[in-house]
């Protein structure tokens, strides 16, 4: 799956930041992953050790903050949590919705020393 690409992307970004900060090492990394981001936590977990091996993130601890997905119904403006992409509005049953939260896939912060 694409989680390896994602993990390698994280390593690249972390490397650049470490270089910019002129620091010696990365002690921890905070990630933010939405439940609708397309990244499976288990798959990311699985590929992580291989992706970070012999890189700036090899010794860094990893914290992940998961964001629950929420949508706004485009018919009746109801805001509701989304578990599956094809969930309909609980009030009017419309499938037209704007998923405004839960697609996050980002590095929140790095702790370097």
């Amino acid at each position: 799956m694409h989680e390896l690409s994602v993990a390698l992307g994280i390593v690249d970004l972390a490397k650049k930041e470490l270089h910019k900060a002129k620091a010696k090492q990365i002690d921890s990394i905070q990630l933010v992953i939405g439940t609708m981001s397309g990244v499976e936590p288990e798959s990311l977990e699985f590929v992580w050790p291989m992706a970070v091996k012999d890189t700036v993130l090899a010794k860094a601890t990893r914290n992940i903050e998961y964001i629950e997905a929420k949508a706004k119904c485009l018919e009746c403006d109801t805001i509701f949590p989304v578990e599956k992409i094809y969930d309909s509005c609980p009030k009017c049953n419309s499938f037209f919705k704007d998923i405004f939260q839960g697609k996050e896939l980002k590095i929140k912060s790095l702790e370097v020393s």
Binding site: L13, E17, A21, A23, D27, K106, I107, K108, S109, L110, E111, V112, S113
Partner: peptide, 8 residues
């Protein structure tokens, strides 16, 4: 130790 806020 420094925390870099990235939000990237």
């Amino acid at each position: 130790k420094t925390v870099i806020e990235l939000e990237q």
